[in-house]
Design a binder for these strands. Sequence first.
DNA 1: TAATTTAAGGTTATCGGTAACATTATTTCA
DNA 2: TGAAATAATGTTACCGATAACCTTAAATTA
Lengths: 341, 341
Amino acid sequence: MVTIYDIAAKAGVSAMTVSRVINNTGKISEKTRAKVRRVMEDLNYVPNHMARSLVLQQTNLLFLLITDITNPFYTTLARGAEDAAKKYGYRLLFGNSDENVEKEKDYVDTILATRADGVLVAPAGDPSLPHLETLRKHQVPFVLLDREVPGLDSDVVLGDSKEGARKLVDHLSSQGHRRIALINGSPYISSARLRLEGYREALKLNDLAYDESYVLETAFEPRSDLSEIESWLERMSPLPTAIVAGNNVLAVEVIRTLHDRGIRVPEQMSVVCFDDLGPYSEIDPFLTVIAQQAYQFGYLGMQLLVERIQERGETGLPWKKVVLPADMIVRRSVSAVENIL
Amino acid sequence: MVTIYDIAAKAGVSAMTVSRVINNTGKISEKTRAKVRRVMEDLNYVPNHMARSLVLQQTNLLFLLITDITNPFYTTLARGAEDAAKKYGYRLLFGNSDENVEKEKDYVDTILATRADGVLVAPAGDPSLPHLETLRKHQVPFVLLDREVPGLDSDVVLGDSKEGARKLVDHLSSQGHRRIALINGSPYISSARLRLEGYREALKLNDLAYDESYVLETAFEPRSDLSEIESWLERMSPLPTAIVAGNNVLAVEVIRTLHDRGIRVPEQMSVVCFDDLGPYSEIDPFLTVIAQQAYQFGYLGMQLLVERIQERGETGLPWKKVVLPADMIVRRSVSAVENIL
DNA sequence: TAATTTAAGGTTATCGGTAACATTATTTCA
DNA sequence: TGAAATAATGTTACCGATAACCTTAAATTA
């Protein structure tokens, strides 16, 4: 590997001069600058980021941790974060925790070991608390995305989950649905809790009774085993006429399970959910959804993070909480109750 | 930041002893080991990856560069790469080039500067050659995914693009289509070239004439400006009855443009493409596609990469080329010609 | 013209680890 | 019982960069 010393030797200058040329610091004559540049090109020199960061005590590296890299919500969010990072001159790397607290912890270790300047995290859930506290203890600035973690103060960008759930239920109710079920993510995830709350409030406002057996709390991540959903569907009696899904992955799994049992959507069952299905929902608009502004989650989150990084030292700045609105897109996955077979 | 020296001082041993405890090397008495461990926990010590890599001359870090993080093909591929990396004990980080050679070059610089042990790359295209050669020159092992780059020998995992294109055209032909158009990625991308070749061969085999105006070569990446597709549609006369899209993104854009012009799919135009739309195509199976084994691209690619890394030093090992089959999934986006309005 | 400034560059120490080579008790064995 | 082996730890140098300080010659200024 070519080092600064190889360049220095070949150019007949000291290593420090090479360093100055690389970083455009200090005073260097045009002649030496040109010579050093030529030697660097000749030898294909690439600065060693680690050596540099070691002495500078900063890496210019930021991380984005998401929980599901195959979910369009998170990948669109990633684009937003990426664009903002570029704007501020940071490099951004991605990690994927798969909704798995252990994997997430591994990434946090990598991040700490890499001495990243900051992190954007969509936490796997409340049990993420310990490793987020570790980040805090090591003074790594971070911003939470999409989910809060009780007991941890921080900047955060959230969607209006409660309002979103209310809108979905209201919409179903307006189509005459009175038996509305909810399949939700783990209660250890803040957004899932708020969606449940919004669901219950909306039921009440629409004079609908809350029936515990109509609620299934499972995992937001995709899984091959659908038996939990199957037994839930069997348990409910009478079957609901509509299902609210806590996110797009759950909606897909519910619909798949319904199809397996010969129940057609929306003819026999209406389904709505949080989060859109990416650009692909445009070709054959099917699911009625709360389309969260995924790109904005990433973009705004990155702005908050960069602010934190640049304010480092100043203490006691209040934590910022951005709540993005929940907009509903009505498509074909809901039919009016009177049309249900 | 807590260092090995802080631990050493507090535990009353030398830094080297701490290092030995961390890495489980050398001989350490149980007593000191326990003491050092306790101090590390007390101080929340995290090893500095950069310092370590600097002296070890290896980072245990691998990178995956993809060209479109919102494309389910690449995110599923990423999952495969991730699982395989974990199996082999490497850390994996992701980068997203957005089909943009410049961005890709930036990532390559980051990778070189980070001194990653290896890279998995889905190259943006033939113009990626210079920076891939830079990787080679710096002896960073890499494996290409999904696309080859002429003039560059390397391990590579490909899909059978030619065969896939043939299958799509054959399928359309079997439904009576005789005017079949192709919207494809840039001719500077190997997979796009092969898809065009397969398309032309299949036309010939089905006794269909090749009409240049029926082929549009554009970009594989999503874009907001659809005017190029619009003017292409206007140019073709008579309109084709079916369109083959070089990938899922193009299919989505074509269908969107068709809808804008009041042309319905599949009632008035059949559309097929390469690459599935992720799990979401299951809820409302619409597009007939060549479903490439995205997960396998990542998993096998990672295996090849790790082999290369571990063989480092041994020269002249032949390059490996894995070609994954192209399987067609027939869904609803094609109708028989006689039913076209 | 002597005293300062400035331009251009060099030296040394350091970032946080680890390899390689000591060192010192303590065992083990001939 | 003395020599050799081993266990447990310490010292030193180095990985590749940069900050802080130092040096020298040329250019300015009083």
